[in-house]
Design a protein around this nucleic acid. Structure first.
Lengths: 393, 393
DNA sequence: CTTGTTTGGTGCATAACGCAACAAAACATT
DNA sequence: AATGTTTTGTTGCGTTATGCACCAAACAAG
């Protein structure tokens, strides 16, 4: 109510803004000339030239011999410009239950370094673990990267509130931990920081490679079911950072013993990896069967496995229907190891979707994200890259 | 992918932007001096003075004798400034099933005219009806209002896609109708136009009187259950304009005859007004009972009515739980005549909410919007007022 | 070779903001 | 009552970034 407006733009703010727009255009459209840039930004060639001159001098942009890829042109060809890859670096760190991954992006957004190593997160107190992980991540960076690092993001399977405070991370046993202020104390003050939920990071990572207009729902399906919602390239976090947590949808399941008493079970306890493995072990009589065994059985159409997969498809369809009606996504992307099951029973999911809600007009496309190399660490790094090109330098 | 950036800001664009910011501040904070404005906007007093000088000359702002309401101040008191009410007007029109409402806002956002009359929308072909309604709405405006009208919004119980095309309006029997292009042809080209879903308009209307940070879910509960999601003052429409349509959530209901075969019913067929009236008529044995009779019976704790209300509370809690987990709202506002039931069984809804999802930490506040005079027409007018203060003049 | 077209750069004008200074208007103090 | 203090509104000047017009350069086509 008394929130200050604070949006006044002064002269030099315009220049900052236009620099950001130019860098974003250069990032998205690849090499382009000053004239291309002027047309794209809607300003005069001379202004574009001044901006590029500034960026050349600062070392963010360089001229390149790349051929003008655009169609046949009549006059003098332009001098192609591109972002200087080694100008700045951005670090993404994924803190998992039993591993830590790091990804380094250069200024063009390309992955220049990627590591994954085992780490028992549960065995350490939070503060010591974070300090440990960051020290290791920094040690793996070259001196030039370290000097030009401008952003770090941590992706954690946790509920992070809008202030960067970790509320609850059941899988790694952390809770109520001021992680952002801790990280802030550990790294130079000119490096931007962001703490993000891992599913949100994955969603951004998937979306950032190419811009998807509209609304995308990203589901990360492992033992838990996480989710991220991306709207026109921006994360939708909800009021307290919990939006998209589809895994916590509740479904009534009648208890065998009692006739009337309904119990409510969360979605991830119904269609998560552990639930599937547990069901398959019971049905197959193999108490040591793995998730891959289950997948193989579904692939071979073993009846016990197919029945479990069918139930999975039905429950997933119910959940997707609720979500589709609530946020109206244009597309749904499935990730995580459980998403492999969709390749076998995707048509069953579609079938149940139409059965649950026959009135649904043009349901969103559902696709499976297979490229697991782009993990949450990549998404986290993308968040910082994106943020740098969106805020003032 | 090839989307032009087109965000370059030139010199005069800065001024336009700052004019908008100044007008918004004046609208939100009420009368304030040039110095107050400069502080709020974060620019120099001289710049603020220049902007105000321009707005005074254009007739958007005037000096007033209103006392500086802010606390004790030492030096020379400032000259209070305020928006000129009669500078511009904005019209909101709600097209209902059996009535049409119009609301006119002045430049300060105050309601200066409000009408409601019966109109059988179903009895007319869409194009003729819209033309008819608009002609009547214009006829009710004074000449000065007509000359200074800058925006018209229509609120319709329909699915409107992002392009302003009416896809489906079952309640009034319209579908697939290019309403925005029709309206565009009927009114002067300097008047902005917006076609919006009625629940969305209501949500904006509720939110616009004072700014609510975070996420608000607005539920319009009549025979149908509509919904609107407002995020930091902006509507979240979803990929195709269907976000928040909570009434179309599907719930499995076992059919009495068949044991196994589940049927899925949409939420509005379970907790909408017609469903409640139908159930109460059956239970009470009064085939002509009205919704108000049912409410009175619940108020008097007539057992048959209370049982129906309890089922309503349980189903509503289930639906709210799914929604809360999906979009994580900070608050939920109930509107429409059915929301009166919440006053009686709100605690039961809360009880079921905790039973469905005991792990929910700090559930959003649920409140009932009683001021029905602020209907969808008011919300539609607010949309145009807001849009004028947000876009370039 | 000449002509046409497009590009990159330069000088000048314009627009908007920040800064500093000043008169004016109230209140506090002596 | 006279004076100092504090804040406000206004004015002139300097800075910055953009737009416009013009020019040389580079390449294609006739």
């Amino acid at each position: 109510m008394k929130a200050a407006t604070k949006l006044g733009a002064s002269g030099s703010a315009v220049r900052q803004h236009n620099i950001q727009v130019a860098l974003r255009a250069l990032h998205r459209m690849g090499p382009m000339s000053r004239a291309d840039l002027a047309r794209d930004m809607g300003l005069n060639r001379s202004s574009s030239g001044h901006i590029i001159g500034h960026l050349l001098q600062e070392g963010y942009v360089r001229e390149t011999n790349c051929l003008p890829s655009s169609g046949r042109q009549m006059g003098r060809p332009g001098i192609m410009l591109e972002l200087v890859p080694e100008a700045l670096y951005f670090l993404g760190v994924e803190i998992g239950v039993a591993h830590v991954s790091t990804v380094v992006l250069d200024f063009t957004g390309a992955v220049v370094q990627s590591e994954r190593r085992l780490y028992d997160t549960r065995g350490e107190p939070p503060a010591a673990a974070v300090e440990d992980i960051l020290r290791d991540a920094f040690a793996s960076l070259g001196a030039d990267m370290l000097a030009r690092l401008r952003g770090i993001a941590l992706a954690i399977p946790a509920h992070i509130d809008p202030g960067g405070h970790l509320r609850l991370a059941p899988q790694i046993g952390w809770q109520d931990f001021a992680i952002q202020t801790l990280v802030r104390k550990l790294i130079p003050s000119d490096v931007a920081i962001r703490i993000e939920n891992d599913a949100n990071a994955l969603a951004i990572g998937h979306d950032y490679r190419e811009f998807h207009p509209g609304v995308t729902l990203f589901l990360l399906m492992e033992t838990g079911i996480g989710g991220g919602i991306v709207v026109n390239g921006e994360l939708f976090r909800g009021g307290r950072g919990l939006a998209g947590e589809i895994g916590h949808l509740r479904f009534p399941r009648s208890v065998p013993g009692q006739e009337q008493g309904e119990r409510y079970v969360s979605l991830e306890d119904l269609i998560g990896k552990d639930a599937l493995v547990c069901a398959y072990r019971g049905a197959s009589g193999e108490p040591l069967a793995s998730f891959d065994d289950f997948l193989a059985a579904v692939s071979d159409r073993v009846p016990e496995a197919v029945i479990i997969a069918e139930e999975w498809a039905k429950t997933l369809a119910q959940a997707l229907c609720q979500t589709i009606r609530t946020i109206d996504p244009n597309r749904i992307v499935l990730g995580g190891c459980v998403s492999a099951l969709y390749r076998f029973v995707g048509n069953r999911v579609q079938h149940h979707l139409m059965r649950v809600d026959p009135e649904m007009t043009e349901p969103p496309r559902i696709l499976v994200e297979g490229r697991e190399q782009f993990g949450a660490a990549f998404g986290a790094a993308c968040i910082m890259h994106k943020e740098f090109l969106s805020r003032e330098s």
